[in-house]
């Protein structure tokens, strides 16, 4: 009995193959070289699945050498052509990698600079709405956040377009302090990047 439960009972039908996917670029590891984050993927694989890393990356080198040898033996013109193509591919992938790295860097910088503005807008005497902008730069989904706040504060909460074309979350009532805490805790935004603003709406509405 115990044996049966520990060892999986061999079923009559073939089981699904379990494929390992790269933790960095989510592709099967053999395709990492095309993902643009090849270096990181390689490190990840080396840590997580050393045997697979060995197999994949030594194989790549061997196959490269093989290609070189074979083509050299067959015809000189063909070999230069394939080497050219290979070089081009290599250059291409290097370029892609650099681009991806740069993009990532820029995204990180953007994130560091991006501020979340929590505006308390006076709607009527003693009635306020809270408008929060800049959340999307910190990887929060506006729609989901709006829904969450609506539930949390038991008020209306929606995503609205501002005059400048961007989108913000508008919550009924003055919830600026709670929202401040929420953004810092749940939203994982550093407190330096959150700003509370008081805003008076134009009179005569």
């Amino acid at each position: 009995m115990a044996e049966n439960s520990s060892a999986e009972t061999p079923s009559t039908e073939p089981q699904a193959r379990k494929v390992t996917y790269c933790g960095v670029c989510t592709l099967p590891p053999e395709y990492c070289e095309f993902g643009g984050t090849a270096k990181k993927c390689k490190e990840w694989l080396e840590n997580e699945y050393p045997d697979m890393h060995e197999r994949l990356y030594s194989e790549v080198i061997i196959s490269h050498i093989l290609i070189l040898h074979r083509t050299a033996a067959v015809a000189a013109t063909l070999s230069t052509l394939s080497i050219d193509a290979q070089k081009r591919a290599q250059k291409d992938s290097a370029k892609k990698e650099a681009k991806a790295a740069q993009q990532e860097k820029r995204a990180a910088e953007d994130k560091a600079a991006a501020k979340v503005l929590i505006k308390r807008v006076e709607r009527n005497k003693r009635k306020y709405v809270t408008a929060v902008s800049g959340l999307e730069a910190h990887g929060l989904d506006l729609k989901k956040v709006a829904k969450e706040w609506g539930k949390k504060f038991a008020t209306g909460s929606s995503v609205t377009k501002t005059a400048s074309g961007s989108e913000e979350v508008v919550v009924q009532g003055d919830n600026s302090d709670e929202i401040y805490d929420w953004v810092a805790d749940v939203g994982n935004v550093p407190e330096d990047n959150i700003e509370l603003i008081e805003d008076k709406k134009k009179k005569g509405g």
């Binding site: 699904a16 193959r17 379990k18 494929v19 099967p28 395709y31 095309f34 193509a85 591919a89 291409d92 992938s93």
Partner: peptide, 19 residues
């Protein structure tokens, strides 16, 4: 497809086309 690779019609492309 990765879990059941043999169950579909398969054709192959050369290395240059992958990227």
């Amino acid at each position: 497809v990765h879990a059941f690779p043999t169950c579909f019609s398969r054709i192959g492309i050369d290395r240059g086309a992958i990227r």
